[in-house]
Amino acid sequence: MTLDRDLMQTIIARYPRSRSAIMPLLHYVQSVSGYVTNEGIETISEILGIETAEVSAVATFYTQYKRKPVGEYHVGVCTNTLCAVMGGDAIFSALKDHLGIENDGVTADGKVSLEHIECNAACDYAPVVMANWEFYDNQSVESAKSLVDGARAGNPPAPTRGPNKLVTYKEASAVLAGLDDGLAREGLQAGAPTLLGLKLSKEGK
């Protein structure tokens, strides 16, 4: 797969100063290659007119930029305190055993990678699992295993609050590069916990 330099120029054009585009450009490289390749770093450095070391410095600072390939479905289990206590630790441990991989590992078929993640702003849905950074709310050991089994078989369950079908890691990376995939109108506007206060107020409570 090759990088589309014209498209990269449209990303740069969003900003008053070109260097600001470095983050979406790195997401874009991941959308093409599945991770931040050396070629991607060289291309960004060339079109932004900065050193490759400066691009690498940014790419290695942010945990979402991967310097080696992740799975087609990248699964993150929240093990920050609240999710960990509510079951995230048990889920993460079970998934490592189930997949036979460690933190930051990828299954041999390249389908699923696993990492423990920090708070993902969905604490009222704890324990939370993310796949390609889509929400899987209120997970259990069983539901998380079904998620990764489905992903390995090529038919993962849909996110709880996300599009009707889980997109691939590369496709999700394109969204994070700010590109429109036409799926914004799919999925729930809100889950039940988000609506709880509103519902109670309508009941006069």
Binding site: N120, P159, V167, L176
Partner: peptide, 14 residues
């Protein structure tokens, strides 16, 4: 916007 929320990014972009 934080990067770990694909669907929120979609909605905001749209």
């Amino acid at each position: 916007i934080r990067g770990e929320v694909t669907h929120v990014a979609r909605r905001m972009n749209a």
